[in-house]
Amino acid sequence: MGDVTVVGAGVIGLSIAHELAVAGHRVQMVAARDATSSVSAVAAAIWFPHDVNSSAQVLDSAQVTYRRLQHLASRPGTGVRMRQGTVLMRHADTDTTWTRAVPQHEWLDSSEIPAGIVASAGASGVRCTVPVAVTDVYLRWLQAAVLALGVKTSTAEVRDLREVLDQENPDALVVAAGIRSAALLGDDDETYPIRGQVVRLANPGLTEWVTDDDNPEGLTYVVPREHDVVCGGTGDRGSWDEQVDPLVEQAILRRALALVPALAGQPVLSRAVGLRPARTSVRVEAVAGYNKPVFACYGHGGAGFTLSWGDAARIAGLIGPA
């Protein structure tokens, strides 16, 4: 195989295009909008397997991506930073298998956990260092990287994969179109959106992030970046609503300020809503029924950045060298 078309230009599609081009393929990307206008641009882009079912494959891809992003953090201009922070957990049965992929982490004792959380039975916390990406900077860097490798891009809304196979005549096609992937393939009823709303505040000088996924009032996370702080969020399963809800934003800010009081008085810089492409399990596989090899890579939930390089490597392995 030499010519490969990738449908989708978010963080998954770009990472796949990069790895295929490195392997020697001639790659064409086609998508209705580029990465800076996709759901990838809404993400807080902190390495963490959020809204994705845990499995050996997910953990392996997360480890691969952690190492790749850690390397990119040492390079100027990528927008990736290694940042220390805290994962707060309110339940004893919370899945912590992700810690195997994090070299620098330590369990907190009860004296280090906020009083409102330690009161929960089985409450705990993990302090660790993980990659965080400034999404617009990282996505622009990744776009430039694939273009430098000779990847061609085109803007079009793909409605029929067979038309792409007929018109482009690639040797293989990869579907990495996020939430639209299932509809394009037409053989998947396991995919659904998870609506995520965020508000971005001016950064008063914070560098450490914190997450409180099990907050009874709603999913809560605070992720400082260079000049802003991403505050979230929501996890509305099955919702296709992409409009910002002012009342939801107020609730997000209340929870974020309770967790990080230093945010009080900081102005709102921007706000956004994105639909996380969730699935019962991440789909990375060959798809039968076409006259050319077709591969699927989607269903990453809130872990697109976290699994991007690992799953891109999986797709490159399935397709093989040019």
Results as ranks from 00 to 15, higher is better:
residue 2 G to T: 03
residue 2 G to V: 01
residue 2 G to H: 05
residue 3 D to T: 01
residue 6 V to P: 01
residue 10 G to L: 07
residue 10 G to C: 07
residue 13 G to Q: 03
residue 15 S to H: 03
residue 22 V to I: 14
residue 29 M to C: 11
residue 33 R to S: 12
residue 40 S to M: 08
residue 48 F to P: 00
residue 53 N to T: 14
residue 57 Q to P: 00
residue 60 D to S: 13
residue 60 D to T: 07
residue 67 R to C: 02
residue 71 H to P: 00
residue 72 L to H: 04
residue 74 S to E: 15
residue 74 S to F: 04
residue 76 P to S: 12
residue 78 T to C: 05
residue 80 V to K: 03
residue 85 G to I: 05
residue 87 V to G: 00
residue 88 L to G: 02
residue 88 L to S: 01
residue 91 H to I: 00
residue 92 A to Q: 06
residue 93 D to R: 01
residue 95 D to E: 06
residue 96 T to W: 11
residue 97 T to V: 13
residue 101 A to G: 04
residue 104 Q to G: 02
residue 105 H to V: 04
residue 112 E to Q: 10
residue 117 I to D: 01
residue 118 V to N: 04
residue 120 S to D: 14
residue 123 A to W: 09
residue 127 R to W: 02
residue 128 C to T: 08
residue 129 T to W: 00
residue 136 D to W: 10
residue 137 V to M: 12
residue 139 L to E: 01
residue 139 L to Q: 04
residue 140 R to T: 11
residue 150 G to Q: 02
residue 152 K to S: 15
residue 160 D to W: 12
residue 168 E to N: 11
residue 172 A to W: 10
residue 175 V to G: 03
residue 189 D to F: 03
residue 190 E to F: 02
residue 191 T to Q: 10
residue 193 P to H: 06
residue 194 I to L: 14
residue 196 G to Y: 08
residue 198 V to I: 15
residue 198 V to Y: 06
residue 199 V to K: 07
residue 200 R to I: 11
residue 200 R to C: 14
residue 202 A to S: 15
residue 203 N to L: 06
residue 205 G to I: 05
residue 210 V to Q: 03
residue 214 D to V: 00
residue 218 G to D: 07
residue 218 G to L: 09
residue 219 L to Y: 15
residue 220 T to I: 11
residue 221 Y to T: 03
residue 222 V to Q: 01
residue 226 E to T: 14
residue 227 H to L: 08
residue 228 D to M: 03
residue 228 D to T: 06
residue 229 V to F: 06
residue 230 V to C: 09
residue 230 V to H: 03
residue 232 G to C: 14
residue 232 G to D: 08
residue 233 G to P: 10
residue 238 G to W: 00
residue 240 W to C: 07
residue 242 E to Y: 02
residue 243 Q to A: 15
residue 252 I to K: 05
residue 254 R to F: 03
residue 254 R to L: 09
residue 254 R to I: 03
residue 257 L to G: 08
residue 259 L to F: 11
residue 264 A to Y: 10
residue 266 Q to N: 06
residue 266 Q to W: 03
residue 268 V to C: 13
residue 269 L to V: 06
residue 270 S to Q: 07
residue 272 A to D: 07
residue 273 V to C: 14
residue 278 A to E: 02
residue 278 A to R: 02
residue 282 V to G: 09
residue 284 V to A: 12
residue 288 A to I: 09
residue 291 N to P: 14
residue 292 K to P: 00
residue 293 P to L: 09
residue 294 V to D: 10
residue 301 G to L: 12
residue 308 S to P: 10
residue 308 S to N: 12
residue 311 D to T: 15
residue 312 A to E: 06
residue 313 A to F: 08
residue 316 A to K: 14
residue 318 L to H: 12
residue 321 P to H: 15
residue 321 P to Q: 15
